[in-house]
C-alpha cells in the first residue's frame, strides 16, 4: 500500500489544463494546412501529383484541398516548388458539414458550430458515445481511446464512452465501413435511442481514407448515416478530436476559450 501511495505522489497530478491552456504540440505536427493564393506557377500540378489520395487540385486561385480525403502526410508541401502549401500546427479541424472540409486560399475552415435546440439541451452537458470501429487500421481508435485516460480525462466534460448503444446518445465511428461491418454499423445505430448524433473520426470514416479505392469498403459512414461532426486526420491528434467534441457541445464557444 505504501508503495502505491509513494507512486501516486511521484506521478503527481497530470491532467492537462486544456481548455484553459493549450498543451504543447509537437514541432513537426501536421495540422491545418495554410494555402497561399495567387502564387502557383501556370500549369503546375506538383501537389496534385504528389498526393496519394487525390485530396488536392490546382485551380486559378490556388490549390483546392479536401481535408476529408487528406492523410496529412505532407507530400504536397514537400513537392510544392513555391511553398504555397504549409501544414501549420493548428489542431482545430472539425466541421459539421462534409462540404466545409473543402478549403482553398481565401476560404477559411468553418469550424464546427454547436448543436442547437433540443439536441443541445439534451446532450450539451452529458454526451454518451458508443464507439464503433468499422474497418480502419485501429489508429484512430488509439487516439479516441487516449481521451479517456487521466491525461485528457474526457469525463470532466460530461463525455463518456459507453458499452451499450442503448445507453448512448450517438455513435463515434472510425474506419471506412467495410462491407463486412455495414450491417453491424446499421444495427448499432438503430439500437441508439433518438435523438442521436453521428461523429466521423478520421479520413477513413469521412471518405474511406487510404482505402477509398477499395471495393471492400463503403467510403465512410456518410454513405450510410447522416453525420453531425467530421474530424479529419490520419489519425487526428487527440486534441483535434477533443476540440471537435467540445465544439459540437458548444463548450468552447460558451467559455470563450481557444
Amino acid at each position: 500500500m505504501i508503495h502505491i501511495l509513494l507512486s501516486r505522489w511521484r506521478q503527481g497530478h497530470r491532467t492537462l489544463p486544456y481548455p484553459k491552456t493549450l498543451p504543447a504540440l509537437p514541432e513537426r505536427l501536421r495540422g491545418m494546412p495554410s494555402l497561399q493564393g495567387g502564387a502557383c506557377p501556370a500549369g503546375c500540378e506538383a501537389c496534385q501529383k504528389a498526393c496519394p489520395v487525390e485530396a488536392i487540385h490546382p485551380s486559378p486561385e490556388g490549390p483546392r484541398m479536401d481535408l476529408g480525403h487528406c492523410l496529412f502526410c505532407g507530400r504536397c508541401q514537400e513537392t510544392c516548388p513555391e511553398g504555397v502549401i504549409r501544414f501549420t500546427r493548428d489542431h482545430r479541424l472539425a466541421v459539421r458539414d462534409r462540404e466545409h472540409l473543402q478549403v482553398f486560399p481565401g476560404r477559411e475552415l468553418q469550424l464546427a458550430a454547436a448543436l442547437e435546440g433540443e439536441l443541445k439541451r439534451l446532450l450539451g452537458r452529458s454526451l454518451k458515445l458508443r464507439v464503433v470501429s468499422a474497418g480502419g487500421c485501429n489508429g484512430c481508435e488509439v487516439d479516441v481511446n487516449v481521451l479517456g485516460t487521466l491525461a485528457w480525462d474526457l469525463g470532466r466534460f460530461g463525455i463518456q464512452y459507453v458499452a451499450s448503444p442503448r445507453h448512448a446518445d450517438g455513435i463515434l465511428l472510425c474506419g471506412p465501413v467495410t462491407a463486412n461491418m455495414e450491417l453491424a454499423v446499421r444495427k448499432t445505430y438503430e439500437a441508439v435511442p433518438g435523438p442521436k448524433v453521428v461523429i466521423a473520426v478520421g479520413a477513413c470514416a469521412i471518405s474511406g481514407g487510404p482505402f477509398r479505392y477499395q471495393q471492400e469498403q463503403r467510403g465512410g459512414v456518410g454513405s450510410l448515416l447522416p453525420v453531425d461532426l467530421h474530424i479529419p486526420g490520419c489519425p487526428p491528434h487527440p486534441l483535434t478530436i477533443l476540440d471537435g467534441l467540445l465544439r459540437l457541445l458548444g463548450r468552447l464557444e460558451e467559455e470563450g476559450r481557444l
Binding site: S133, A134, G135, G136, G175, P176, T178, N180, M181, A184, F211, Y213, Q214, Q215, E216, Q217
Partner: peptide
C-alpha cells in the same frame, strides 16, 4: 474475424 477486411494484399 474478417470484419476489418479491406483488401490490402490485392490493393
Amino acid at each position: 474475424l474478417g470484419y476489418q477486411h479491406r483488401g490490402l494484399e490485392q490493393a
